[in-house]
């Protein structure tokens, strides 16, 4: 197991109110899995992502990542784990506006534990990462000179720079149009094919459909955890399958569509 959650609970206190964001979540994810975490807002998927990404500590329960018990680590240790084991991709890219694409990609290296001696190899790694996401020609561009899809590619390059155990994406296509969404999802699939463990948090079934395993949450508990082919638990899945069927049908019978269009 790459990571293992055992009976994780997370309780927030907002004023006098207590919110149970996670109520006993247990799951394991293996190396080179491609997982979608789904759920409506308030289902606890963001909290789960924060715990998985070591941004937050669970109130109770154990979380082991690559054998280390991270659920009881301090802030500085968690920062190191995030730096070395986890790559984040956010909905709104979170690039530093005044830095070039290359500088943005290098950001995690600034906080790495190695000394200055690896400076050249660092730069090489950053260039490599940018090349992997197909932006070798945009290295000196600043974020405002890049399209949304390119910005997200820079963010992905930054996330994979330290060869993290987990690539963690939070609604990575939420700010992108459908064509670019497909590009970015294709990139995630490619990285997965190259051996990267990927976890995508999303509420879109279209996005989840690209993954291999879907974990659905509701009210802080796991509703279902199935491989994509068997993921039928929610009505959303039926919708997805329905839509996919329709799309497949549309591709197979183009004349019918033109006919329909003509009829209209």
């Amino acid at each position: 197991m790459l990571l293992e959650l055992r009976d994780i609970t997370k309780v927030y206190r907002v004023g006098v109110e207590t919110i149970h964001a996670l109520r006993g979540v247990s799951l394991g994810i293996d190396r080179n899995e491609f997982v979608a975490v789904m759920g409506s807002s308030g289902s606890g998927k963001s909290t789960l992502m924060n715990v998985l990404g070591c941004l937050d500590r669970p109130t109770a329960g154990e979380y082991r990542l690559t054998g280390q018990l991270v659920s009881r680590m301090g802030a500085a240790e968690l920062a190191r784990i995030r730096n070395e084991q986890i790559g984040f991709v956010f909905q709104s890219f979170e690039l530093l506006p005044r830095q070039t694409a290359l500088q943005n990609v290098e950001l995690p290296l600034i906080y790495a534990r190695e000394g200055i001696w690896g400076w050249r190899s660092r730069r090489r790694r950053a260039i490599e990462a940018l090349t992997r996401v197909g932006l070798a020609s945009r290295m000196t561009h600043r974020p405002n000179q890049l399209s949304g899809g390119q910005k997200q590619r820079v963010a992905i390059a930054r996330a994979i720079l330290n060869r993290p155990a987990i690539l963690m994406a939070d609604e990575p296509t939420g700010n992108l149009d459908s064509a670019t969404t497909l590009d970015i999802l294709a990139l995630f699939r490619q990285l997965h094919a190259e051996g990267q463990t990927v976890i995508i948090v999303t509420h879109e079934d279209d996005v989840a459909a690209h993954c291999k395993r879907v974990i659905r949450l509701r009210d802080g508990q796991i509703l279902s955890d199935l491989p994509i082919e068997k993921d039928q638990a929610g009505r959303f899945v039926d919708d997805v399958n329905e839509r996919q069927r329709q799309r497949a049908a549309a591709r197979q019978t183009p004349p019918a569509r033109t006919g329909e269009a003509a009829a209209c």
């Binding site: 920062a79 906080y111 930054r158």
Partner: peptide, 16 residues
């Protein structure tokens, strides 16, 4: 604040 959040997410310790 967001920049600080990002830096922390990519591994900046409080000391950094």
């Amino acid at each position: 604040t967001r920049e600080i959040g990002l830096r922390k997410a990519v591994g900046a310790t409080p000391a950094a």
